[in-house]
Design a protein around this nucleic acid. Structure first.
Length: 803
DNA sequence: CCTAGTTTCCCT
DNA sequence: GGGAAACTAGGC
């Protein structure tokens, strides 16, 4: 008899294992590991994944698989194995790991409903019967909201009502309504002749079908003939037209035409860098390459030609790009080279669109996926290369469980497929560069910009000096004069401000009150478009107060500088300048990112003002000036990587200037010009920065010299949070080797989120083979309390941010 | 001894 | 995660 081992969709410690189910005979020959199933679990039905098939089980009372959800496995053997690896590495539940590898559309939705048991209606009193009026089922959610929950529960016990559970697919196949004529041309003409004279619109619709007898989407028909739905409906009712639903793929790029491009001739440096990659592709040998190339050195062309080789060999490629630079511009470069062999995956797509892109990969209709972090799980079976561009970007680390880093997953997958990984960056993560220096990764260097353009000249302006000279504006003299100069010449400028919102916080000038989030230990941010204050952590939102809630003074004001405020200032000092603002507020709508960039590229604006999202990937020939309004904003964050992040951001944004014929200039405004990460980004000298930062990391026992594990404990009760963290710290100190450095308990940088107090313990270590085991013991120990959700303990192996 | 509220156990 | 069994405390 066929038995399936199933991992069920119940993310809890006790259910974090396989359960055996028998396979009904009719499915015996269909089922395979990696398929989703619906299985009975206790009194309800849940979704699960088949992880293995076997012939017998030592479980006595075995139940049957209720339903099979897939005809083909959604996870192949490699991905199932990768799931186990993820579970192990990130210390998450198996089900969480498996679901993380699939598009959200494949996750189940659950519904619990009540129904009157057959023939028991007369046992119910009028109030209960009234609830079921016109309905044969009512949802459990409504029951809980009604005042009759206890009464209904009693009827369930007596058997008058029964509880039913449904497992639904989240996914809906997208359909469109299609209209087609039921008569031939002559029939339509005849009918048009006998239409009453007031049915002008119906006549026009018939005329459309007389000229175009093919089926047409309802939406298009309405647009083409300029009629309303009612007109078409009338013709359908009369039996002249027919309507049907047709399934379609959602293709976010369907209306775009991409001109094919041919591979460029590589420079000597590029060719030298590509050669070892090609060798690895053709020898089927695994290797990790760190492609270290200055901004504008043509890394993308190397990626494209490597992928081209892979496709010619009949294999597939994954190309990861950071979320914020996964712009239509980037996608275009890949679609222009590889046409419809490319699938695209990023968070801007709807659940359905992501699912459709995933299906293209699953059905082997494409050879390349270009995508953000989660695209690393693309279900390719013959991977020939994995490329991670801007590999230092922190968005490659997922900050929710499973807390994986796409770079680690990439290497794990590439080992399985015996294929190369390319990590590309102008400013590699220190960890990566250190590995390259130790020859763990192979270093490939591009030191020159393509078409010989020079790196831009960088001016570092001391804003304290400006203030001393009486300039209180947010623009230094240097930046202002260069701005006016560009404006006169008709060249373009990019202005970077590393903040969002109108102002960072609101403060009362009379009593000094800063408006904080009531649930979190963090100040609220002002958003102008709806005159409100928002918390970026819990989503709390309130109206901007007219007077100080504490002292009643109306001297309540914004502090700090946001993109909106800079925009206003620009309008004052350079009223003739056309400005495009890009930040979370102006790009939240679908397609707005692309629209703004296109407008800028086509020269509809002189200045592009934005947050970090503009630092990457922009490649417009007319940009000759880049201004960084305040370089220090991220420098003073409580994070050991803040220098590295600052250096990377400044170098990246500087690289936007002068990439083509026109030479570029950069102005960096700062209050700490002497800080090495600012000074060295001015010289664009990564190598010196690397040496300097490595020295500090060694001194302070941070990566790459040490590994990190961060334990975060949260509880509504402050004392409890402290006590638990303290206990964990003590336990780990006792059980790990004396070489491990265990810091804590300390309050998290954000010490309260959503009314939960947060404490943490940081472990720095070089080699602790027992660490994961010990951490598991810790989780086990607090299992009861965490299950009740009073206490939360999260563990982040190799954290990217210390919050 | 019954009941309502709470904790623990178990799901194949 | 959630239902049901097991357990506990308070009512008369």
């Amino acid at each position: 008899m066929g038995i399936a081992s199933v991992v069920v969709d119940v993310p809890a410690k006790q259910t974090d294992r396989e359960f055996d189910y028998s396979i009904p005979g009719k499915w015996e020959h269909i089922v395979q590991p990696g398929m989703r199933v619906i299985v009975p679990f206790g009194p309800r039905m849940v979704q699960g994944f088949i992880t293995a098939l076997k012939n017998d089980s030592n479980v006595k009372k075995i139940r049957e698989v209720k339903e099979i959800l897939d005809l083909e496995p959604v996870l192949n053997e490699e991905l199932l194995k990768l799931g186990s690896w993820l579970t192990e590495e990130t210390m998450c539940f198996r089900i969480t790991a498996l679901q993380a590898m699939l598009p959200a559309a494949l996750k189940a939705k659950y519904e619990k409903v009540l129904r009157i048991s057959t023939g028991r209606e007369e046992h119910l009193e009028a109030t209960v019967q009234a609830l079921f009026k016109n309905k044969d089922m009512i949802s459990w959610k409504d029951v809980l909201e009604s005042d009759h929950a206890a009464l209904l529960q009693k009827h369930v016990r007596k058997g008058n009502l029964e509880v039913m559970y449904f497992v639904k697919d989240k996914l809906k196949k997208k359909t469109v309504r299609v209209i087609q004529p039921l008569l031939n041309k002559e029939g339509l003409e005849d009918y048009a002749g006998i239409l009453p004279p007031n049915a002008r619109k119906q006549y026009e619709v018939l005329h459309h079908f007389i000229n175009h007898p093919d089926k047409i989407q309802l939406r298009e028909l309405l647009e083409d003939v300029r009629v309303s739905n009612a007109v078409v409906k009338a013709l359908i009712d009369k039996g002249i037209l027919a309507e049907k639903e047709e399934e379609i793929y959602r293709d976010p790029y369907e209306n775009r035409v991409f001109k094919q491009t041919e591979p460029f001739i590589l420079t000597q440096e590029q060719a030298d860098a590509l050669r070892p990659v090609k060798k690895s592709i053709h020898d089927n040998s695994h290797a990790v390459f760190l492609l270290y190339g200055v901004t504008g050195s043509g890394k993308t062309e190397i990626y494209l030609q490597a992928i081209d080789d892979v496709i010619k060999k009949g294999e597939e490629a994954i190309m990861l790009v950071p979320e914020i630079s996964l712009t239509p511009q980037t996608v275009k470069r890949f679609k222009e080279r590889f046409g419809n062999l490319v699938a695209v995956m990023h968070s801007g797509l709807s659940i359905g669109e992501k699912y459709d892109e995933w299906r293209k990969i699953h059905r082997k209709e494409v050879k390349v996926v270009v995508g953000a972090r989660s695209a690393i799980f693309a279900p390719f079976e013959n991977l020939g290369i994995i490329i991670i561009d801007e590999e230092h970007e922190s968005s490659y680390k997922q900050e929710e469980t499973p807390r994986y880093h796409a770079r680690e997953v990439a290497i794990e997958r590439a080992k399985h497929h015996n294929c190369p990984v390319i990590l590309g960056s102008a400013t590699p993560a220190l960890e990566s560069f250190a590995r390259a220096k130790k020859n763990v990764y192979k270093l490939l260097t591009l030191s020159k910009r393509m078409n010989e353009s020079k790196l831009p000249r960088v001016d570092i302006v001391d804003m304290r000096e400006e203030l001393r000279n009486g300039n209180r504006s947010m623009f230094s003299k240097t930046l202002f004069s260069k701005l006016t100069d560009r404006l006169e010449k008709g060249e373009q400028t990019v202005l970077l401000l590393n903040k969002r919102g109108h102002s960072s916080f609101v403060m009362c000038r009379s009593c000094g009150l800063v408006t904080n989030c009531p649930n979190c230990d963090i100040s609220l941010t002002y958003h102008r478009y709806n005159d409100s204050l928002k918390c970026h952590y819990c989503g709390h939102e309130e109206r901007m107060p007219q007077a100080c809630p504490e002292c009643g003074s109306d001297h309540i004001r914004f502090f700090g500088t946001g993109t909106q405020k800079v925009e206003e200032e620009l309008a004052k000092i350079l009223p003739e300048a056309r400005v495009i603002r890009m930040d979370v507020d102006t790009t939240s709508k679908k397609g707005s990112h692309e629209r703004l960039l296109n407008a800028f590229q086509e020269g509809h604006a002189d200045i592009l003002l934005g947050t970090q999202m503009i630092a990457k990937g922009l490649d417009f020939p007319n940009i000759t000036l880049v201004g960084v309004l305040s370089a220090d904003t991220m420098l003073h964050l409580p994070d050991f990587r803040s220098s590295e992040k600052t250096f990377q951001l400044l170098t990246q944004v500087s690289g936007r200037a002068g990439r083509h014929e026109l030479p570029g200039e950069v102005v960096i405004q700062t209050y700490t010009p002497e800080h090495y990460s600012i000074e060295l980004s001015g010289l664009q000298d990564f190598d010196v920065f690397y040496e300097r930062e490595m020295y500090i990391r060694r001194q302070s026992h941070y990566p790459p010299y040490y590994y990190l594990a961060l334990i975060n404990v949260s509880h509504e009760d402050l004392m409890k949070a402290v006590a638990v963290t303290e206990k964990i710290t003590k336990y780990l100190t006792a059980s790990l080797s004396p070489e491990a450095i265990i810091l804590g308990p300390v309050a998290s940088p954000i010490s309260r989120i959503n009314n939960r107090y947060r404490y943490q313990c940081l472990i720095k270590y070089k080699r602790e083979p027992e660490l994961k085991k010990q951490l598991r013991t810790v989780l086990e120990h607090y299992q009861q309390e965490t299950a009740q959700n009073l206490l939360q303990i999260s563990i982040d192996m190799n954290p990217q941010i210390m919050m």
